[in-house]
Simulated assay, not measured.
Amino acid sequence: QLIVYNHMWFEDAEWQCSGCTGFTTQFTRLMGVEKFDARFVIVTQGPIDEALAYKRKVGNAMTWYSTANSSFGSDVGAPPNAGFAVNVFLRDGDKVYRTWHTDGRGVEQLSHLFGLADLLPYGRQEEWQDSPEGWPQQPTGSRWAQSKEIAAAYGENS
């Protein structure tokens, strides 16, 4: 059993997607998943040497793989330079089945950060929320920790 997070990757970017970086840094202790005979990994379309350097830079603990120069990202709903997703696979002998997929707001439901923020009276304070007039609202993602902040807090030079 394999849970794959497809992390967005932008060629030649110093900082990769803050949403993806923030999401994946929430998963630092994966022993619980392993007890279910499963693994949780990150797949990106960036070159593996750059991906591993970025992993260290932001202090990510998960195993990273690269699918550079392959159609894997597009095949599973996370096209180059545009997509992120969570996919779950089951291998049965020589056959591999994709048993679950989500992207966009569906991925957010797997995050403890958004679950906690959604409990707050003002919620995430994002424009898409149906909030009473006068309540704080800002552009979606503007309150999220940026990749550079995550690196400062958790990365190899923190």
Score class of each variant (00 low, 15 high):
S18D: 06
S18E: 03
P121V: 13
V88M: 14
F89K: 02
H7D: 01
F23V: 05
L119G: 04
F114H: 13
E126G: 06
S147D: 09
T102N: 06
G115M: 15
S70A: 03
N6E: 05
G19L: 05
G83V: 08
E34N: 12
T44S: 15
G83S: 05
G106I: 00
A151H: 06
T67H: 15
G22Q: 02
Q16P: 10
G115A: 14
K148Y: 13
T140I: 14
Q16D: 01
K95C: 00
Y65W: 09
E127G: 13
I150N: 11
S158T: 07
Y122G: 09
G115F: 12
G83P: 08
D49M: 05
F36N: 15
W100E: 04
T25I: 04
D103L: 03
Q138W: 03
K55F: 01
C17Q: 03
T140N: 09
A61E: 07
W128D: 10
D130C: 08
C17G: 03
S74Y: 14
P47A: 12
I48P: 03
C17E: 01
H101D: 01
K55D: 06
H112D: 09
G73R: 09
S147T: 15
D92A: 09
F27Y: 13
A85Q: 04
G93Y: 11
K57A: 08
H112W: 12
E108S: 13
V4W: 02
D103P: 00
A61C: 00
E34P: 02
S111D: 07
C20A: 11
Y54R: 01
A145H: 06
V33Y: 13
M31D: 14
A61G: 04
L113C: 00
A145S: 12
A13C: 02
V88S: 09
S70Q: 03
V86I: 15
V41K: 08
A85D: 08
L113I: 12
D37Y: 10
V107T: 11
N81P: 00
Q26E: 15
D75Q: 14
L110I: 02
E11W: 03
I42Y: 06
Y154L: 11
F114Y: 15
Q109H: 08
N6Q: 12
G19H: 11
